[in-house]
Design a protein around this nucleic acid. Sequence first.
DNA 1: ATTCTTTGCTTAAACGTTTAAGCAAGTGTT
DNA 2: AACACTTGCTTAAACGTTTAAGCAAAGAAT
Lengths: 340, 340
Amino acid sequence: MKASLKDIAKKVGVSTALVSYVINGKEREMRVGEEMVARIKKAARELNYQPNQIAKSLKSGKTLTIGFIVADISNTFFANLARIIEDEAKKSNYTVIFGSSDETPENAWNLMTVLLNRQVDGFIIAPTVNSEAQIKYLQEKNIPFVLIDRYLPDLPANYVALDNYKAAFDAVSLLIRNGRRRIGMVNYDTSLFHLQERSRGYKQALTENKLQVEPVLLQEIRESHLKEDIKEALDSFRALEPPVDAIFFPSNKLTVTGLKYIRDLKLKVPDDIAVVGFDETDAYDLFYCPITYVRQPMAAFGKQAVELLLKNIESNKNITQLNLEATLVVRASSGGMPDK
Amino acid sequence: MKASLKDIAKKVGVSTALVSYVINGKEREMRVGEEMVARIKKAARELNYQPNQIAKSLKSGKTLTIGFIVADISNTFFANLARIIEDEAKKSNYTVIFGSSDETPENAWNLMTVLLNRQVDGFIIAPTVNSEAQIKYLQEKNIPFVLIDRYLPDLPANYVALDNYKAAFDAVSLLIRNGRRRIGMVNYDTSLFHLQERSRGYKQALTENKLQVEPVLLQEIRESHLKEDIKEALDSFRALEPPVDAIFFPSNKLTVTGLKYIRDLKLKVPDDIAVVGFDETDAYDLFYCPITYVRQPMAAFGKQAVELLLKNIESNKNITQLNLEATLVVRASSGGMPDK
DNA sequence: ATTCTTTGCTTAAACGTTTAAGCAAGTGTT
DNA sequence: AACACTTGCTTAAACGTTTAAGCAAAGAAT
């Protein structure tokens, strides 16, 4: 059904080699006769020839394919990233295969081997917890990869991530400038470095402003019991004396879930409680009080990750680690516009 | 670096054929000696053999890959679908390559040929407007595919979609039962059949309840100027005498954008105006008045689409067209709980 | 008239698999 | 002792490309 080089060769009455040269524009170097070039091109057009990329890949060892491994492609954050990576990859004729690890290292490892068997040229990975072995495997085998969003602090590897510390620091500093003194934070109880960095930024902002870093103000909850644990955390915040007057949520899911409960409690944002969230979502606009949030530079993430990866694929360059700056999008929920 | 069948064969001192038989579990049919089987398996383990899927694909003509073509993978609707399709495909050892068409038939066509060159075994497609040629091409070439979410009314092709007519009919009927008499709808000005069906359901609900289907009540706007046009539409609704007392938005973006403007206008939902939206998003929960919406059966969409596609890949079965039922999730925004 | 170059093509091997066909022993049957 | 089966392996071609190497014919140089 589908025409191959052989079909064109037969039709024109020449060898497949000659056809290959012409199709790939090597007619000059290979000194193919003008008339022959025309006949082959004509035949190719008539047969609607489309090269078999699989055969090409087998020969060349390159598939022009990127494996994109994330926690969950249905999470807006990763879905947005996927789109940017797709567009960026397309510019260099790459396509993207994705896989969701659901935050478990086993799934991530399985995904990686599946994609490796499919000979992807490289990976863009948002690593799960306990994925050191996986990353080291890639390094040993010299397989190009770039970590995105998250990274492992002591592993020298390419990554494109946020300056999480500074992002959190700035967010909390804003709340302090707006007069809040009892600032809570609800983070995941996780070993993911980027989330710990956000906690560190929170603490440092308090410290630098001579506020006490009280353990009850930094609640670490289970992702598996997000809804229940967030309620508990907020309840304990309100039970304090004096109660918390501001909350910083360092992820989109935390923010959204937290806001739902705040709405159920009929708390007034920002009067009863100020809020700063993380990541961008429509939900922040629809809340009765527009939410102040930390915006990650998604486009830069995707663009830089692909660029870095492709550079690594074509020549194993040395390691690049990028910590990009977040933007604090200030709106009503953080309580009063900051001076500036 | 990576071990091949040949490496194993060399190490054991046998032919690659024998190794292939053992690796693929054909040792019984092929009467391979017990001791030999053990030696080959051992060598494979020691060399950490992983089959080259590209070579397999070239031989078999099957890539175990599905092409998933959508308007925009960063749209929650498609991102959710992607995740379900991924999981479902994984069960049968398939992987998914995705591509975003941005609603233009040229992009969709290009994507299709790129993926065809990569020899995907089949497609799951949410077709754009004017994609008849593309669909017909697939049919002529006998390439398995399943349309999802959208379909072309007169083209006999597999699809998994919503019963859009009924979903809209039910949504609008609810508003009528709740006492609304001036019900507006804001749809895209598009030839996409599934959206037209939603308009049809709207009109029919009005008609069956002896309400006049006035053109001013059904505004068709440009997706490219979503924000401006929605404002204009809502303004014209409010200028009517008597003004509109309920709005039905037949997509998630329309709903979210509409709600933003409603909030800016400080209209009270549902007292000033009742709202029924489409699709599921966190934003509906965070609005001060929880939004009633039409929930599409995403899991069933994905599951059925993959199932259908795989059935078509292994044996060209006859055409299946599924119109699944939506669920109306009733909350406060539609104005008063319905009787029942 | 012989050799050297250039032109324009072909041959053949390779990428890593799969699989039909073949073949040399050993075993069993008569 | 001759034959047929069975066992356990190998050979070789194929999938659709790419590309180094080779070669015949024509033209140019001596």
